[in-house]
Design a protein around this nucleic acid. Sequence first.
RNA 1: GCCGAAGUGGUGGAAUUGGUAGACACGCUGGAUUCAAAAUCCAGUUCUUUCACGAGAGUGUGGGUUCGAUUCCCACCUUCGGUACCA
Length: 956
Amino acid sequence: MSVIDYKEIEAKWQASWKENQVYKVDDTSDKPKYYVLDMFPYPSGAGLHVGHPLGYIASDIFARFKRMRGFNVLHPMGFDSFGLPAEEYALQTGVHPAKSTEQNMTRYLEQFSNLGFSYDWSRKLFTSDPNYYKWTQWIFTQLFDHYFDVKDQVAKPIEELLAIFKESGNASANAATSQEETFTAEQWKGYSKAEQSEILMNYRLAFRKVGYVNWCEELGTVLANDQVKDGLSERGGYPVEQKAMTQWYLRITAYAERLLNDLNDISWSDALKTIQGNWIGRSEGASIEFELDGREEKIEIFTTRPDTIFGATYMVLAPLHELVGQITTADQKAKVEEYVNYVKSKSEIERMAEKETTGCFTGAYAINPFTKEKVPVWIAEYVLKDYGTGAIMAVPSDDERDNNFAKKFELPIIEVVDKSAHPGAGMADKVGTMINSGFINGMKVKEAIKTVCDKVKEMGIGESHINYKMRDANFSRQRYWGEPFPIEFDGDGVPHALSLDELPVKLPVTNDFKPGTGGKSPLSRMEEWVNSKPGYTKETDVMPAVAGSSWYYLRYMDPNNDGTFAAKEKIDYWQDVDLYVGGSEHAVAHLMYARFWHKFLFDKGLVPTNEPFKKLINQGMIQGVIEFIYLLKEKEDGLSKFICTELLSKYGTEKDIARIPIYVDYVQDYGSDKSYLNIESIEKFIAWRKEYADAIFECGYGTYHKGKFTPKSDGACDLHLYTHSEVGKMSKSKFNVINPDDIIAQYGTDCFRMYEMFLGPIEQSKPWDTNGIEGVSKFLKKLISLYVNEEGQWIVTDEPSSDEAKKVFHKSLEKIQKDILAFSMNTGVSAFMICINELKKLKTHNRDILEPLAQTIAPFAPFLAEELWHRLGHEGSIHLTKYPEVNPQYLKEDNFTYPICVNGKKRALLSLPADASKEEIEKAALALDEITKWLEDKQIIKTIVVPQKMVNFVVK
RNA sequence: GCCGAAGUGGUGGAAUUGGUAGACACGCUGGAUUCAAAAUCCAGUUCUUUCACGAGAGUGUGGGUUCGAUUCCCACCUUCGGUACCA
């Protein structure tokens, strides 16, 4: 037992900090502001797991450091409390999501408190709170009421667009749009209200269009991608197909250019910027129309290589392209339908990952506008409906996938680019000289691209076009536990945004969360709610979880404001997030949507900055071990059968076997190569999954069935059913969540905090283990022993410390500060360990070192530091004191130890004065016996002397 | 498939702009203390070879640039994250 009882001091200081509101922050101050934000968690039923605090601890250290460095630090926390798991739980148990979510939040709050974070809890928010989602809904109505002016690159009120339509139709409007037809002012005025509304949908930043969802007929519901495995529903294993449905979307594509360009202005990692850039996927090219042989319809394609059009020997449409049904010939109809059904049974990700080349001929032919040749029109899963125009001209000579496809289906390949002058250039490289290409023969690729673009424009069949891979964001969920849309439809089915005084549209209370009919949300069945306003019906879809998280960082600035989403003067003070820390798994979705919303609010003059998160750090994930047991897909004599991993080959291939994840706690030696289930484990498993009570469990030593173990031969060992272990995300659905609670109870919060930091670089992912925690625990005890002896006596003296001890401290202080600023917390902890080891050796008990030492470690070990501070005789919190300054006087080194190398290999060490000249260094090195023996009979060709680095002799 | 990241002792990891590979810990081995254990302290611990001194090899694999490469370049392998409805 340590001389300081961490449980006692944790309770004491938690209460004291709360009572004295140590971490409460004002919205005005003479100090410079600093905003440190953590990605808020979804309050899962499994509780906060050991992966969450990794980023939270690091940002807390940073926030505490900044505070002690004289900044006014905003460091808030809240909950992303809308989400699918709570609704799934409600479906299974009948517990209302609001209730389970609240319970989970209470649990999280306790865990947060135990972790000693310096959050200003008076700013707590959660996205499922009507006082919060009122403003989420309000921002949505603003998106609905705006369009994007492409020329000015700014959002404008829809009224301005209406004025343009009335004045001169839509041809002159520079708006981001999905509208294809043009109309005149007269035509516009002649349209009905419903028709006008339909057209405006093609302009609004929040709009409705048809999109595809994962539809499961058996379950009567729409499924998340996460809930679909191998084309079957995870729950029940029923078929899932792509179903068309009218849904809400956000026109994020309008902001693509700004989202891309403004990446240059923010301090994010290059990797993350690259990911976002690739996600936006800007590509320059041309859209070109191909006529169909003997038909009215035309196929519009997008290509980045218009120069290769003479090599376009076939066309490919996305299988879900609307033209497919129209152009397919009678004799190909059956085959095409079969193929489309096959594609519909697969998720997009599965289709993209498909290694095998698949496709189907439609029977139709298009006309290459330049060669006038008839080219066959195919459909294939490698062309995606939502990318570009959902159709391509295939040029097998210059595109890898087209090439594979052409080879497989024996389609012609015409070489059109001579790359002989560019050895090593790949198919996709835009270099070479055009051949077999009519009027562009002999041109360089770049020139040919421009020439073809000009030509198609002249011919009236196309134009230069910038395409983005990024798609508009599907914003509808056919679910209950999300923000209701602030939208009502009138008698003509025209949607209207509700005004602010009608918000929030509260989620109706119900205990029945089953989906509505035809894939509609559960809300559709609540007729009273849907029809509460005479003559109107409410939208019954709800918003996705990204809605609430797209602007929450602004609400923290003014969390309780009922008159606006956040008061202007408070936003003007806090501006934006200076440092944002969160998991790398959010690299695109959340960060892209939040940037989009922020830019929209900026356009409206509601926020003063163009980007929300100045600096961002992506922490790696703490992974868990996922344990699986193998279940035969076919029952044996009507009984389920689980088999040991070692028997896998006996029972056929992976195809015949399902992998069932199991609670890691049930598994013996989990995570190791030899993880296994014994009889006790199986009994726990059966108690949990009662449907397997009758199952047979077979391992190499025997079988277990209904409580009885039958060995295979006499004297066989116990049951050892080996399991399959994998490393993966910690998740409730994988039954592998490890909570920090037990570790904190055993070692204390300060130790847990420092251990998580000691694990390794913050950005790196790694599986959780507690192997090294003893070392950190010992370190803290050693630290305490500088202040208090084993008998519990206070041993700090007022005598001045030695220069040697001061040197140790100030060198450590310098390193630690540098590490905190670089977010290199693991090396910071190491620096503390080295510092304490040396101070211990020097028997340092002097107040002039131990006081600043306590302040130095305060951001890392807040409880212990506070306790020591008070025992040192101070009133008030250590966390509100000023961080110690480095005294450069103690950083100087008199000597440097040189490695002396021969041919790059270290042969000796030599300590010399730090200011020794090159000549002196060389001379001293050559005098060493260890070196002369390597130089005998050899000739020195070159001598490299780098002061304060090394010496190298090159010999022959 | 595509995009991004990582790969260093038995383990987690360290190593300024290319300059002593393995800091700091865990584990292990031996010793001290103890009736014994825990705890604590001391010493050792990349591998091969050697009684030892020493020598050789070594940062996922294969090449390259350099006096010198964990670090830079090329090709590949493995693992993890994302891939638009998990959050």
